[in-house]
């Protein structure tokens, strides 16, 4: 872990340095430093109220930090907001997936950002072809639906896939997945993991936020554990042999405010 932190800052797509954010008296994010490298899946875990959501909203530009630096590809950014976050190649897949279920997959992928000419006429064929390509990229090989199928015909995991495909289309270098496996069955969860594998294979990075430690353990290369607005542990997967070890660390953190072994920060 120590050797990792010595890598150049420009290796990070985005890096937060000593970022804070408080709401009234609550220090939701209390001096967090962390970064994401290209092609890396970061599992962001922590109990309710640990600051996960606030951290995500800072990354997506919904919240501006009170203090600290945001560094995109080695350069500090000023006036951080949602537009700059997207310019930096960060797409957030929200927990509710932001889909319109009665509309087609294509329409959902391009919702709000249709491919159209200057008169507003939609290039239907181009959208269809792009949606088809994206579905294949993401690993939608099922034959029962195509880009014209309504999202309502898809399962929860497949809907998550559509939301991820949308993020991919807009050339995200970093996709933030907020609780993507919540309320999904085992098979569905496996599908979402399949999508994540595909995203990683394309050299994109992911921040995976989850409550379920087993899910996070399976998918992440590196774990960042938050507690009361601070990073209390950062560890690569190789250093943690099983999910149970990770859960034990989490329990210690909950009781003591830090992990007992040297891996805690």
């Amino acid at each position: 872990m120590q050797t990792e932190q010595k890598t150049k800052t420009s290796d990070y797509i985005i890096e937060l340095r000593a970022v804070t954010k408080s709401f009234g008296n609550v220090n939701a994010v209390d001096g967090i430093s962390f970064g994401v490298r290209p092609g890396e899946v970061v599992g962001l875990i922590g109990d309710n109220g640990a600051g996960k959501s606030t951290l995500i909203k800072i990354l997506s530009g919904v919240h501006q930090p009170d203090s600290g630096q945001i560094i995109v590809r080695g350069e500090a950014v000023r006036g951080w907001n949602a537009a700059k976050s997207r310019e930096a190649g960060i797409e957030t897949v929200y927990q509710d997936r932001a889909l319109a279920p009665q509309q087609t997959i294509t329409r959902n992928i391009f919702m709000g950002r249709e491919i159209k000419n200057r008169f507003g006429v939609i290039k239907v064929k181009q959208q269809y072809a792009e949606a088809n390509r994206l579905m294949r990229d993401i690993g939608f090989t099922s034959k029962v639906f195509d880009p014209d199928s309504p999202v309502a015909t898809l399962s929860g995991g497949e809907r998550q896939g559509v939301a991820i495909a949308r993020a991919l289309y807009f050339d995200a270098d970093l996709i933030v997945l907020d609780e993507p496996t919540t309320a999904l069955s085992l098979v569905e969860t496996a599908k979402v993991f399949g999508f994540i594998e595909n995203v990683r294979a394309r050299g994109r990075s992911i921040i995976f936020i989850g409550h379920n430690i087993y899910h996070v353990y399976d998918v992440a290369d590196r774990f960042v554990v938050l507690d009361r607005g601070q990073v209390v542990m950062t560890e690569v997967k190789g250093a943690i042999s099983t999910p149970e070890v990770l859960i034990k660390h989490m329990q210690e953190i909950a009781e003591l405010g830090h992990a007992t072994d040297a891996s805690g920060t």
Partner: peptide, 24 residues
């Protein structure tokens, strides 16, 4: 069916929260 106005009308009627999150 073919203009972004009509398509956005569909999305807004289907799920206004999602439409807003996607920038409509």
């Amino acid at each position: 069916n073919r203009h972004s106005f009509g398509v956005r009308v569909h999305c807004v009627g289907d799920n206004p929260e999602s439409a807003a999150e996607m920038g409509i």
